[in-house]
Design a protein around this nucleic acid. Structure first.
Lengths: 215, 215
DNA sequence: GTTGTTTTTTATACATGTATAGAAAGTAGC
DNA sequence: GCTACTTTCTATACATGTATAAAAAACAAC
């Protein structure tokens, strides 16, 4: 039945993925290039492309491995709203350490095959709170958009901080007209400080509350 | 006082930005490369780097020009919640046509110098709804994260659709265990259809409602 | 005018993802 | 064993953003 034909492969998808894992652990996501990966596997860059469609697919495979290792935190049984908030917070916690994952996902709001626990739990909680299944899907996607946006913004801010350089905000606040934008002008210097806060929890609570209470 | 010294410049920032604008109009954001831009301006790629720090700065300059041309829609006077929703919707409408802008912004939740009307109006509306200014800033950022996430996901989905190829979702739903994820299994085929819906309005309404009503 | 200084431009180079073409290494039919 | 076919791998090439070094073009001091 196997009856393999053709030149026998020297490397496998699994080899690639585990080598990629090693590189990321040792050098961070930044060190993961196709050529570097090829060297680690002991082949050429283009040979990798016979096993993965492109780098994005490779990242998705990594995500999947990673997701399989996520500790699913226990979610409180009682209030459905609280369950949804907990699950969303756990989802965010799982992703926030590897923001590159969010770049890969984005369109794929389902995360990974091994991370379906998150949408499942959130949707279940939303149905428990009284939403129709279709509405719960909408609500889940809304929560996902918020979560992805927050992680992405957080990662971008961290990158900028690393690279230094003048923030764009400074420029914005320098040329600020108090007549046109009184609220912003009043905030002034405090903007930097205020926008350093972690608002995820606040946001997800408001969002879930707003979603489960009708208009 | 001017007393310019040094080799006289052949090109200016303004030249660069307007040439970039021309390219984007004619060929889309995809056609905007540093070399293509240099050709349009009549110089070399590296010469551009004496006028802009990097491509991101160039994109920010473009955004700023673009923002200056945005029609500020009138926002209803009455209900503060409705004002915030309108302003957020206008912000999203302004950005959704050029999703690359969101990639540039992300960390810079203030948009552009010429688009401060959006945060100003939103924060003002939130204060009008009873929030303290600090809370209103938090709330604005939360709304921004949601908006950026939604646009980003939408753009990624469109890109994927263009390129074709099997969706990751298909793979996810293929190997789905109804015991572990009953809600998702029940949805099954409908996922694709359900997730094609535009949920921005629903989300932003829920979010603002949740934000202005205390916990 | 020669020499130095400053600013801008050019030339060259590199790492990256990935396309394309062809070589290599196996099996199957005869 | 020879030919055809299939799969995998290798070599080469390209476009991209951008670093670095050198050259060019102006002015100022003497």
């Amino acid at each position: 039945m196997p009856a393999r034909t053709g030149r026998p492969p020297k490397i496998s998808r699994a080899d690639i993925v585990s080598a990629a894992h090693r590189i990321i652990d040792a050098e961070g996501i930044h060190g993961l290039t196709m050529r570097r990966l090829a060297r680690e596997v002991g082949t050429t860059a283009m040979a990798l492309y016979h096993h993965v469609r492109d780098k994005d697919e490779l990242l998705r495979l990594l995500l999947d491995e990673y997701a399989a290792g996520i500790e699913l935190s226990d979610v409180p049984g009682g209030d459905p709203v609280e369950r949804v908030v907990s699950a969303a917070t756990a989802m965010r916690a799982a992703l926030v350490g590897s923001p590159w994952i969010v770049e890969v996902l984005r369109a794929d709001d389902l995360l990974s095959v091994h991370a379906l626990w998150f949408p499942e739990t959130i949707i279940d909680g939303l149905v428990g709170a009284g939403l129709e299944p279709e509405e719960a899907v909408d609500a889940y996607r809304i929560i996902w958009h918020y979560t992805a946006g927050e992680i992405s913004a957080r990662a971008a801010a961290a990158r900028r901080r690393d690279r230094g350089g003048p923030t764009y905000r400074g420029q914005v606040f320098a040329g600020l007209d108090p007549d046109e934008t009184p609220r912003l002008a009043a905030l002034g210097e405090r903007w930097e400080e205020l926008t350093a806060r972690d608002t995820y929890d606040k946001g997800v609570r408001a969002l879930v509350r707003g979603l489960v209470t009708g208009p």
